[in-house]
Design a protein around this nucleic acid. Structure first.
Lengths: 229, 229
DNA sequence: CGGTCGGTTGAAGCGCATCAATCCAAGTGG
DNA sequence: CCACTTGGATTGATGCGCTTCAACCGACCG
């Protein structure tokens, strides 16, 4: 996805006072109610947005009216970096969320002024491209069951760490969002989840609350090469 | 596609002697026979490669042994820019081709030394991300027929211009490459092409030689919003 | 002439979409 | 407090699209 994880400069702190992180930190947090849009597809891309809390989804309306969810954005993730003149996607809040906005001019100025930051920014953008590629390949060549398993693993990795027995995965977004993200229907997402539950791979405490029972099998379903049953 | 089109600085020529284009132009052209690999997936990414002539395909072997074609590279396209430590894809010649190699160090040095170039390079990378996103969405949400039509349109736009009646599209790559690129089987690609021919949208002078008969219909099949039948 | 490889066409089966019904939890109003 | 409503999640039944397996065709080559 093109969502960028918040940069970590802990290992090699920059010699300049202005970092991207501090830039965002200096901005006020703007609340966005669940279901509300933070930015609109087609609007002029004058600012970059970082999620402070909650979760947003980046989405686009396709030519035929269908909706495509491009990614889910959690705390630290940014959106709008890759936009050219206008935003390519809308960003709507899945849950109540908080965001910070930074004008692109400001961001550009920071990058201009601190040469140390540029390689990091460049590497980040590059990594985003790689991640998008990866996701792209996975989704394009996998079956619906594999996509769902893959999604669960990705959500676990992002917010809880490497899948382990008993680990809880929270899915704050409705099934329809997951479906539009994976390129399948809501019913198929349900069936895949049900199948995973029936096979003892996961258990469902509720629609939004998944518990990993057999991490090995889950990874195997997701198409991980090194997964052991 | 993460392949980057060759930059055009014609409109605003750089004030520095060293441009990315001139950097590549200063390197010798290395011939690559059809079927041979120019770079290998997993190899250390020490250099960036630009196609001088012919066509290459960027591909990857997936965990389950299937092959995924990530993109096709024509003259001016680059590969290896987005790689981190090691190359994520192999690049094999579809036809006899010529390539130029530039060490990444050198490229980085040029970017460091000429501030004018950086926005352009950044914009290019950004555009590549957008294009990849676009392709990703299209392929994920379209049917096999739409994918094939879309591919034909993309090939036409890239090497011949906006689809027009009588325009010839050359497909130097075998059907298997197209199939692995679109995420469908060879047979499906064939059937879709046959269907387009039967409907008078295209005609086939040979497997690699397509002529557009009804550009409007072709665009409509590709899922273009403004297409007129 | 036989052999191989890429392309095309045909027949059968599976996977996912579609349509439809049901279930469940959370509101909402009497 | 309970009947009613509502939206999301789930399950079931059916159809279509693509894959799979198989055969055939044509070009190229030894």
């Amino acid at each position: 996805m093109y969502a960028l994880k918040s940069p970590r400069f802990g290992a090699t702190p920059p010699r300049h006072a202005w970092t991207i992180e501090s830039l965002f930190a200096s901005r006020p947090v703007e609340p966005v109610g669940a279901g509300c849009a933070a930015i609109w597809e087609g609007d002029p891309a004058t600012e970059v947005l970082q999620v402070a809390s909650g979760m947003l989804r980046a989405q686009r309306i396709l030519f035929d009216g269908r909706r495509a969810v491009v990614g889910f954005l959690g705390p630290g993730d940014m959106i709008g970096l890759c936009s050219a003149e206008t935003h390519l996607h809308s960003a709507e809040a899945v849950t109540d969320a908080g965001i910070r906005r930074v004008p692109r001019r400001m961001l550009r100025a920071v990058l201009e002024r601190s040469p140390d930051l540029r390689p990091a920014a460049f590497a980040q953008l590059r990594d985003a491209v790689c991640a998008a590629q990866e996701q792209f390949l996975v989704l394009l060549h996998q079956s619906a069951d594999e996509r769902v398993a893959n999604f669960l693993v990705a959500m676990a990795r992002r917010y809880a760490g490497e899948p382990a027995r008993g680990m809880e995965i929270l899915l704050p977004m409705p099934r329809a969002d997951i479906a539009d993200y994976l390129g399948v229907t809501v019913e198929t997402v349900c069936r895949s989840m049900t199948k995973l539950r029936a096979q003892g791979v996961i258990s469902l405490l509720g629609p939004a609350h998944v518990v990993i029972e057999r991490p090995g099998r889950l990874l195997a379903r997701a198409g991980e090469p090194s997964a052991v049953a």
